[in-house]
């Protein structure tokens, strides 16, 4: 029991270090992408009028992932910003996937189940998003 306990603690701290790095890199990378997109956008459209009083959704060329990627290649500012936002959104989701892998290494079946359940809820939410 004593040995097993020691082993488990070691893996828990391992997981903490990996998760800490993952979160940090995710935030750095996505914010950098957002800022680059912002510079492109402001350089080209900085003098246009800002009017967001009524809700009109987002421009047509960034409405789905395929269009966003296509326009990122064309260096369109709003598409690059949106890519950065998607990377930021993916960071905590990746964290859940990494936790699941960590619990697999620890053979902690209960928490593998819990991590997968959380992932499934997020996936269900993403799939329902188009509706309504």
């Amino acid at each position: 029991m004593g040995k097993e306990h020691k082993n488990k603690r070691f893996k828990d701290t391992d997981m903490q270090i990996v998760i800490g790095w993952l979160l940090r890199i995710g935030v750095y990378v996505s914010i950098t992408v957002v800022i680059i997109g912002g510079i492109f956008f402001l350089y080209r459209h900085g003098s246009t009028v800002a009017d967001y009083r009524s809700f009109k959704g987002v421009p047509g060329f960034i409405q789905n992932l395929g269009d966003i990627m296509h326009n990122v290649v064309l260096l369109r500012g709003q598409a690059i910003i949106q890519l950065g936002i998607i990377l930021l959104l993916a960071t905590p989701i990746l964290r859940v996937i990494f936790s699941a892998i960590g619990f697999m290494l620890e053979k902690d079946y209960l928490y593998i189940f819990i991590s997968v359940l959380v992932l499934l809820i997020i996936i269900a939410s993403a799939l329902s998003g188009g509706a309504g």
């Binding site: 957002v34 997109g37 956008f41 800002a50 009109k56 910003i81 949106q82």
Partner: peptide
Amino acid sequence: RGYVHPVIAM
């Protein structure tokens, strides 16, 4: 749903 507008979110 288009709530996340890049020009505001940035």
